[in-house]
């Protein structure tokens, strides 16, 4: 089992721990895409002391766990994640579609428009 861990910086807390209840699929999709983006562009940490962090468990089925000050929740991570170099990570969907910035932006535009 592989595990990725990232600290959530201050400005992103409200993205992953929104004030309102997560009550529809759009919101989950939004969080999933933002988490992908966050994983692509932020450094992983080995052992974190941060109160807010994201953990990605990579197994046959992967899960994203969001750990906050008073709250922990998890969602399914439906993508493959590959480490290219120590810095660079790539995410794709069944080797068909790369989940990169452009492919994160486009569905986000749609979920924002609803």
């Amino acid at each position: 089992m592989k595990m990725f861990q990232l600290d959530i910086n201050q400005s992103q807390i409200k993205t992953f721990f929104p004030h309102e209840r997560i009550k529809n699929k759009y919101k989950i999709l939004e969080i999933l895409l933002e988490a992908c983006r966050y994983i692509l562009y932020n450094k992983r940490v080995v052992k974190s002391q941060n109160q807010y962090r994201i953990i990605l468990y990579k197994e046959k089925t992967s899960r994203l766990i969001f750990i906050g000050e008073n709250k922990i929740y998890s969602i399914v991570f439906p993508f493959n994640i590959t480490q290219i170099t120590s810095e660079e990570i790539k995410i794709n969907y069944r080797n068909i579609l790369e989940i990169d910035s452009e492919n994160i932006t486009k569905p986000t535009e749609i979920t924002n428009y609803k």
Binding site: Q10, Y38, L40, N42, S101, I104
Partner: peptide
């Protein structure tokens, strides 16, 4: 494509350096 990448990279750089 690369512009979206640039924008995301810049956004996180601003997040972490300027908070």
């Amino acid at each position: 494509k690369h512009l979206f990448k640039y924008l995301d990279g810049l956004s996180y750089a601003i997040n972490s350096e300027l908070e």
